[in-house]
Simulated scan of single mutants.
Amino acid sequence: MTATSSAAGPCAGGVTVDRSDPARRAWVAQAVRRIEADAQRSADTHLLRFPLPSEVGVDLYLKDESTHVTGSLKHRLARSLFLYALCNGWLGEGTTVIESSSGSTAVSEAYFARLIGVPFVAVMPRWTSPEKISLIQAQGGRCHLVDDAAAIYDESRRLAAACGGHYMDQFTHAERATDWRGNNNIAESIFEQLTLERYPVPEWIVTAAGTGGTSATIGRYVRYRGHATRLCVPDPENSAFFPAWCASDPSVTGGGSKIEGIGRPRVEPSFVGQVIDRMMTVPDSCSVAAMRAVEKVLGRKVGPSTGTNLWTAFSLAAEMRDAGAAGSIVALLCDSGDRYADSYYDDDWVAAQGWDLGPATEIVSEFLRSGRWPDSAAGR
């Protein structure tokens, strides 16, 4: 840094402060190029048609985010967060990236950290699935586990300060790091892929919230484009999002969530409730029953947050049928169920959570057979 002043006085030239660093700028430019090149090599994710009984009369699609190279919806977020941090001047060569995460975001951020050659540390609850921990480590990341989920924020800041690193803070920056007007965001992708379908403008898009960034992007985009599409955000048990949204009070807190990746003990800064048209709570047993039940339909396993989305999409489809309304619904398929073989797909683990999947499994199975959905079911 240099500072100079003119002998003729401040009006003649003033003081100049120069913080330019050509080497750092060159490194940032190369890092951005590597991330953009990675995106250029990647194809868009599929929009799958989910077969519903003909009696329903609604077209249901799943936006399959599991096909990203890091296996989840969070790949998009991680790419945006890294570009945002680089272009804001927060990352330099050798900067350690710290992130608070329940798993999938950390997997994706570890990938991008390795891509640009910086260390990565994920701060996660101790009960994060072993499969996700292994995936983070396989990408070159390190896992720092804490006993209290609410402590991940302060612990991330502490670690970043201790090593002179950067706390990425997905929960604050998710909604601002993504260009919600387009630029190949998930909302633009959905509408482009629906162009030739029977109902190209969906009645509903369903996505649960973790950071709130994806729901904010979709909600803003549909308004920007003037679509009539409504956004439904289901929320798992004990999460703060639903009661805070109902009360229009972001200070409301909850006990957290047992559905990995969604629901939070507090309302995160990236949660933009004003763009959400409807919220509903989904019992954990219903999320898990739905994720398991659709395996026979899809021919593969999906994760628990996808189960939350599907339970809600089935309910909305039945509601449209009852109202005699035709149209389409899009729900997000967030990640693969292969990451949860030792948890949500393990009967002993499920029983230890106190969940009885029987009633919810029967509801989903009956809906997939006949299109009937009981009014008494959660979410209706």
Rank of each mutant, 00 (worst) to 15 (best):
N184R: 15
N184Y: 08
N185D: 15
N185L: 09
N185H: 11
I186Y: 12
I186V: 13
I186D: 10
A187D: 12
E188I: 11
S189W: 01
S189R: 02
S189Q: 14
S189Y: 06
I190V: 15
I190D: 07
E192W: 09
Q193R: 06
Q193C: 01
Q193N: 00
Q193I: 05
Q193Y: 00
L194E: 05
T195R: 15
T195L: 14
L196E: 14
L196R: 14
L196T: 15
E197Q: 14
E197Y: 03
E197M: 11
E197I: 04
R198Y: 03
R198E: 11
Y199E: 10
Y199D: 08
P200F: 00
P200L: 00
V201T: 11
V201Y: 02
P202W: 01
P202C: 08
P202A: 03
P202R: 00
E203P: 00
W204T: 03
I205H: 06
I205K: 01
I205P: 05
V206S: 07
V206K: 09
T207N: 13
T207C: 04
A208M: 00
A208I: 01
A209K: 02
G210K: 07
G210P: 04
G210M: 05
G210N: 09
G210E: 13
T211L: 03
G212V: 09
G212Q: 08
G213L: 05
T214F: 07
T214W: 05
T214S: 12
T214G: 01
S215Y: 01
S215H: 02
S215K: 03
A216L: 04
T217S: 13
T217H: 05
I218D: 02
I218R: 09
I218K: 04
I218L: 12
I218H: 08
I218E: 04
G219V: 04
R220C: 08
V222P: 06
V222N: 10
V222M: 03
V222D: 04
V222Y: 03
R223D: 03
R223N: 11
R225A: 12
R225Y: 14
R225V: 10
R225D: 12
G226V: 11
H227C: 07
H227P: 08
H227L: 15
A228F: 09
T229C: 13
T229N: 06
R230W: 09
R230Q: 14
L231Q: 02
C232E: 04
C232A: 15
V233H: 02
V233K: 00
P234H: 11
D235Y: 07
D235A: 01
D235Q: 05
P236L: 10
P236M: 08
P236D: 06
E237G: 11
E237S: 13
E237M: 12
N238I: 06
S239Y: 05
A240E: 05
A240Y: 07
A240K: 11
F241C: 06
F241W: 13
F242L: 15
P243M: 10
P243K: 02
A244W: 05
A244F: 09
C246Q: 15
A247T: 01
A247W: 07
S248Q: 15
S248F: 06
